[in-house]
Design a protein around this nucleic acid. Sequence first.
DNA 1: AAAAACATACCGTCTGGTCGGTTTTTCACA
DNA 2: TGTGAAAAACCGACCAGACGGTATGTTTTT
Lengths: 198, 198
Amino acid sequence: MQQRSETTRAHILDAARKLFARSGYESASVDAICAEAGVSKGAFYHHFPTKQAIFLQLLENWLSGLETQLETAREGTENVAQVFVNMTALIPGIFRDADQRLPMFLEFWAQASRDKTVWDATISPYRRYRDFFAELIEQGVAEGTFREVNPQIAAEMIVSLAVGTLLQGLLDARGTDWQQTAIESMQIMMTGLAKEQK
Amino acid sequence: MQQRSETTRAHILDAARKLFARSGYESASVDAICAEAGVSKGAFYHHFPTKQAIFLQLLENWLSGLETQLETAREGTENVAQVFVNMTALIPGIFRDADQRLPMFLEFWAQASRDKTVWDATISPYRRYRDFFAELIEQGVAEGTFREVNPQIAAEMIVSLAVGTLLQGLLDARGTDWQQTAIESMQIMMTGLAKEQK
DNA sequence: AAAAACATACCGTCTGGTCGGTTTTTCACA
DNA sequence: TGTGAAAAACCGACCAGACGGTATGTTTTT
């Protein structure tokens, strides 16, 4: 069986995620990752060709996980309002993970703006998120829930709001109740998008 | 006169800004910065005690510049709507600068989440931005322009939207007209905040 | 026994920072 | 205004250590 191999690989990935989050991509040395994982350098380079490869693997894992969560929120719903209610329920979990992952996320983006390989790996899931929300808005417009807004732009606005709120939550963790801010921001935005005001 | 000294210092700062943006904080070596600036390593360490010091100086310069721009947008205005109109006019300039500065900005935030010194330098100007918008919202509520929203939360929403839009504009530069998105997002948000709907 | 998984010693390179020396600027005083 | 010495500005060779990656050997699984 290849069980030992898979365990080792998982240990390395986990250690890398921890160290990237703690000290950043450049500062987290391969040696340190190996030490944290309790394996040798030989094992590391047996599983991953370069340091960047493990970085890309972590990126892939995280982004596809997020996508799954989003699609789950839409599953089985018939109107748009219901989807956004479901998404509100996701917020605590997202914030819980964020502390661990966001510093790494910032590095992803910083690297993506310079490195074509990282950019490719980042941009396609990101565009899928955007399209996901654009479809949702379009559906809402068709349903009569939303005004006749441009779905692409509204989708970009949603992503901006999400990213911006997460980043502020990361930076100023103990200053505010960021979950509350996320929910209320979403409500203000929904009011701005809604067709009929009460 | 200390003119030579000041010129050298300016050269170093400018070279550092360029290289940090191009290759990132860690990858931009002191040697490379010196070469770009056309000075020696001795000159570098005569003006800045460490590599991090120059990083902090650039952060300070940028953030205080942004603050000045914001305050200019408020100057001489009497109602809140006017301020936001003025701010809209700032958008093209901000986006023009962003390409050069945002990768570095991402690094600032990534570092701020780990390094107390960088965090301190980042958080206080950031809080001033937030308070600036909170005051603005409060004024709008008092004027009767806005609904009775929580000014702090609305301010956080504005900053989130700004940061998120800029980041997307950086990442997906050629995919959308981001200035247009920024303006329309702002309008949607204003509609959500406004007291009376047309 | 073949192959996959893992260990370890090692290498060339690059890094931030130092240090002793040289050049340029400043300024008190003649 | 000229001058000379102190101070500031600048130079560039050098260092100790850390880094990503490799090469070769050993253990474990198939």
